[in-house]
Amino acid sequence: MFDHDHDHPHEPIVTAARPSLYEIMETAVRELLIERHLIGAHEIRRQIEVLDSRTPALGGAIVARAWIDPAFKARLLADGRGACEEFGISFYDDTSLIVLENTEAVHNLIVCTLCSCYPRPVLGLPPDWYKLKPYRARAIFEPRAVLAEFGTVIPAEVEVRVSDSTSMVRYLVLPRRPEGSDDFTEAELAALVTRDAMIGVVPVNLIDGASP
């Protein structure tokens, strides 16, 4: 709201809703763990810093390098975690990573039907829709309809591969390099790669890359 005069004080930010059962439980467990010296407040704060430092920009840098460096791409497809570790990306949650390459013949889509498994070390926190039941349920039985709702229409001759992440393995989609990006630098390529492209719901294109 930018169209009002700024000659009056704003309402203070207040939290009116009562905490949920799980919020209360989290607070209680956290306070107990700290009180009994099992973990310290600084460890919780540090872990939040770890999570905040992981964003789709890391994944974008990985994808751009794979596009310009065939040897790196080969290592990435053979051992996703090891190749990301070359970039200094740690896998603090001890998951492994399978990188799924989109090609002319194959389109990959990732989901976690049981909960919200996601390649957090390289992409950060998942979007809300990824964690909600409509996406989790529909991605596995009508992936083409879900993709079409994202504006991604996959031709019938292209195989759709849905990977359901349920255990110790996470996935990252390696999207196709867009046509017309031959002259782009590595940094310019990285800026084209969106979070949703690395989940597999959209392709990378020259128009809507690098949007905030």
């Binding site: 083409r144 019938a156 195989e159 849905v162 990977s163």
Partner: peptide, 9 residues
């Protein structure tokens, strides 16, 4: 409803 080549992993 999709093509028979679609798979789940």
């Amino acid at each position: 409803p999709g093509p028979v080549r679609d798979r789940l992993f």
